[in-house]
């Protein structure tokens, strides 16, 4: 251990449990004693906010909820904040899912959004269509004639009994003011870019997990009006919109977790340079 190679080898091969253990301890500590790290707001988030803020009472916001339980920690707070903002402006919501788990998560999402507190009535002001299979061809059909593709909502109520669905009619894209995609899969967004943004010039906003953002940046801002960058983006949106929620609470944990990873990256690289890198 006294030699450089010994220390370097130790640093380059720190046990996994130590790495995870310290991350858990750091995040648990910061949950109890938040430090309130600053949350600077990115342009990508500002553009999402602007796309929602420009909507008027009665406009229809079409939402594809494509996240699953694994990403709920940062997808849900972003969605709650955007929905609260949209509802504060009297915007109607049409929610569908492209992930089989998502429909189960809509209930807990709307429990947090509380649309009924703003006088929203299911079927008139918001609908939940559940899982829609088919990928990109189904997005094309939805934009063409939503009632031709979807005959019942998630609770198996015929769409003909839902006034909002009658309002959508055909061609559906003419009635939609904004499309929002919450997903962990890039192919979903690319499909929507082609079928909504390129075909009909509809404004498109999205929240994806952080690792998907680099693949979407080439589409921003021409095809994608704004991107919420996972948990950080959700916290920024909560901060910007004034609808403070879970993302702001999580932001300190995310920052602290990132700092611990950074420390380990530095230690690992020092170890590498003292061993293999040093020999070169």
């Amino acid at each position: 251990m006294g030699e450089n190679g010994g220390i370097g080898k130790t640093l380059a091969n720190l046990p996994t449990w130590l790495y995870f253990g310290l991350i858990i301890i750091a995040m648990a500590y910061i949950t109890l004693y938040p430090l309130g790290f600053p949350i600077p707001i990115s342009d990508q988030t500002r553009y999402v906010y602007a796309a929602v803020d420009v909507l008027e009472t009665g406009d229809i916001f079409f939402v594809n909820m494509g996240y699953e339980s694994g990403t709920i920690a940062f997808m849900e707070p972003g969605m709650v904040a955007v929905f609260r903002h949209a509802i504060s402006k009297g915007v109607k919501l049409v929610i569908m899912s492209t992930a089989v788990e998502s429909p189960m998560l809509v209930g807990r999402l709307m429990d947090k959004v509380k649309p009924e507190a703003s006088g929203y009535v299911y079927g008139e002001d918001w609908v939940h269509l559940g899982f829609i299979a088919g990928g990109e061809p189904s997005y094309a059909s939805l934009m063409g004639d939503i009632n031709g593709l979807v005959t019942e909502d998630y609770q198996q109520t015929p769409t003909s009994d839902l006034p909002l669905m009658a309002e959508l009619g055909a061609p559906t894209h003419e009635k939609i003011a904004l499309v929002g995609i919450w997903t962990a899969g890039g192919d979903v967004i690319e499909g929507w870019i082609r079928q909504a943004a390129v075909q009909y010039d509809l404004p498109l906003i999205t929240e994806v997990n952080e690792m998907m953002v680099p693949t979407l940046l080439p589409y921003y801002p021409i095809n994608l009006d704004g991107i919420l960058n996972g948990g950080i983006g959700a916290a920024e949106y909560e901060n910007l919109s004034g609808f403070a929620g879970e993302a702001i609470k999580l932001s300190d944990m995310m920052t602290m977790g990132g700092l611990v990873v950074l420390i380990f990256l530095i230690l690992g690289n020092i170890g590498f340079l003292m061993t293999k890198g040093g020999k070169k």
Partner: peptide, 9 residues
């Protein structure tokens, strides 16, 4: 990290 932060919270 964000996914696990949600579970810790």
């Amino acid at each position: 990290i964000n996914q696990y932060a949600g579970r810790i919270a």
